[in-house]
Design a protein around this nucleic acid. Structure first.
Lengths: 132, 132, 132, 132
DNA sequence: GTGGTCTAGACCACA
DNA sequence: GTGGTCTAGACCACT
């Protein structure tokens, strides 16, 4: 479920954050569902509990999960901390990657298809703007 | 020409790599054009020459530029290291960002518009599949 | 009557303390009124009795309630542990929060309004210096 | 400059965050000023560097400072990450404290005076809404 | 049992 | 030199 690459340049805790975000966004993990405990996950992945906690803390500050002392960590319901600043940042990142993609020879059609696929993967559970 | 943000979390050498990629992709820097020398650029940007060199090395390994000992660094002709592996990687990154964007509430239409804009900025120079 | 947010970072017992203080301050709970028993409240809120007890102990040590063995817990008559030390502490906390508020862009007028509102909610029962 | 209470219930790193916020808000530390390095401060306060870093990281995620690998940590220019959600939260905290203050016998006038003082301490450097 | 804090000490990446 | 990541292990607070 969590494939970590300990050799990667990307820090382990960031990989964890990414992976968990993904699971939350695709609703594999649903609202208020309990996440594996810090210690258990640490044992399972054979990494240090502190590293897990760092990931969980980051996810919490980004609004994806919430942690309660003595009880555990849980998935937040929908919308994370969304301020327009963050949205701009994401758009900007996408722009850069898209232009690189086009330069590398990925066609517009492929990109459109990509969006469709992603929407299909997520959209299922949520009412989207498909019926304006 | 090179606006570096010393406050950014992103390492300066990475910013340089990104910016130069951008200039190459948008064909502001054209094939076989000579890049400013490491020393000159370092002096101009008042940053450490090692940092410039690291950026150039990175661009070379990604296939965007090539260096000739004793002469300098030059822009590669179009298509950099075009292995399918890299394309997959970029697609993957885009997927992640797109799904996060949708989760954050950015609409499909906005994403389509983004693609259009980017294509407009680049498109002229590259043959795309716009007329299938 | 007691709306606890199990998702909050704030420990449940602290939420209880806060809520009970509020009820006492706004005189919903009046002097010498009996508080619900630890067990009843625990059952009603479906939380651990130890948690309730911890809250009651805290309120007692702060002078808001008093407990009589074998009889129960009761609201103290007005003025809790009114030592100047505590007043200084509260003032200090307020100062910090106010300066952060101003820094975040909340205007003085908003703060004044806040004070007015709170006084309106409480004021009736306490003699204030509103007519100097 | 930094008076830490290692015995306090409040975690050391939180005390640090508070204190640094205070220094930034009151403009003792000004925009783009360099903070003491993680290691230096750790040595000076005789606490573990990780603890300092935790504080710095928290301040960064709240938008008060920014850190650059290899260079140091610096005070952000003015406005931190201000979303309306956070403002509401601060207002709420203030409300609670104010009502407790009034209950403890602090008068409205004292509170007004407190606001004036704080404004004086901060306002000096910034143009406030005193001239509408 | 849960999460959270802190330390000591190692090693990496950046400038 | 700077910040950043990670580990091993201790101890605390909450339920």
């Amino acid at each position: 479920m969590f494939e970590l690459d300990v050799r990667s340049r990307k820090p382990i805790y960031e990989q964890l954050v990414e992976r968990l975000k993904e699971l939350i966004i695709t609703e594999v993990l649903t609202a208020d569902e309990q996440l594996p405990s810090v210690r258990m996950l640490a044992q399972q992945l054979t990494i240090n509990p502190n590293t897990i906690q760092k990931a969980y803390r980051e996810l919490e500050s980004q609004g994806y999960i919430y942690s309660i002392k003595g009880k555990g960590s849980f998935v937040s319901a929908a919308t994370p901390n969304l301020n327009s600043e963050k949205i701009e940042k994401v758009k900007n990142e996408i722009s850069k990657l898209l232009s690189e993609a086009l330069y590398l020879g990925i066609t517009k059609n492929e990109l459109y298809k990509l969006i469709q696929e992603i929407e299909a993967a997520i959209g299922g559970g949520i009412d989207d703007d498909q019926n304006p």
